[in-house]
Design a protein around this nucleic acid. Structure first.
Lengths: 138, 138
DNA sequence: ATACGGGTTCCCCTTACAGGAAGGTCAAGG
DNA sequence: CCTTGACCTTCCTGTAAGGGGAACCCGTAT
């Protein structure tokens, strides 16, 4: 298979696939004309990468997962550790986003959004600066 | 105020403040010794930046918000538009993260996490590759 | 002969800073 | 007077994960 084929089958852009070769995640053969020649196992890895990346695993996570994937002797607990760590990061990010969402929703709801210049959003964003200054001055 | 003072008061690292000057978000004076000399209005802007960034606004969003902040004539609707666009992006990101969370939770729950090599997580991540290959072959 | 649809390498661009080197400044202490 | 240490300065490099595009081969169909 040429890069276009694996690109279509894996759903990854060709650029991404070349990049993954660059950083040593896949090592396709080369044809006589210099084209990359991918085997089924390469396609497997790339598809795996696509899924793991879409779940938000970093490249380094993926590298570790791929190594475990290749290792028929590894314990499933090794994989579970990586996955749970990642789940923890997702939880954290979710919490942050939910807070942002809440705060911003409040601000937006309070803003009239008309032609007048009064805007609780800007007021909310700038709140605190004066207090901090006077606290230092006192 | 020197950079260390505004850093402490705004909560932003000095590096970040210098960066914000680089890209034209603040324009502090200079003392005779070459040190940056910040006025209260600079501190206000930087504090504003800190809050807006912590809510996930991009630098470009912040640049626009700062311009609106400085413009006593702007309509609050201008601000509301930016905020609502950002809220939409947050919603989107939340949805994605929740999906990731769900999928990964399923996979982790199904994994025994013991010494045996069978791992539903890896199986789940690699699912699909074979089907796609055979679909092409047929 | 040429057009076109692959493929290749190479280099710069992105976001929003962080880290660190090399060196100037300022106030306090010996 | 010298040093020490905390600040400050600029400049350069690096990050994650590729994207965009130039300049150039390859193979086939017209």
């Amino acid at each position: 298979m040429n890069i276009g084929d694996v690109s279509r089958l894996s759903g990854l852009p060709a650029k991404t696939i070349r990049y993954y070769e660059d950083i040593g995640l896949v090592a396709p053969q080369r044809s006589d004309n210099g084209y990359r020649s991918f085997r089924d196992s390469d396609l497997h890895k790339l598809t795996f990468m696509g899924r793991a990346r879409s779940l938000g695993f970093t490249i380094e996570d993926c590298r570790n997962l791929l190594a475990l994937y290749d290792d028929r002797e590894r314990a499933s607990s090794d994989v579970k550790v990586i996955a749970r760590e990642h789940l923890g990061r997702i939880d954290q990010k979710l919490k942050e986003l939910q807070e942002m969402h809440e705060t911003l929703t409040h601000l937006v709801d309070e803003c009239a959004g008309d032609h007048r210049p009064d805007c609780p959003i800007l007021a909310g964003l700038s709140a605190g600066a004066d207090e901090e200054l006077s606290a230092v001055a006192s």
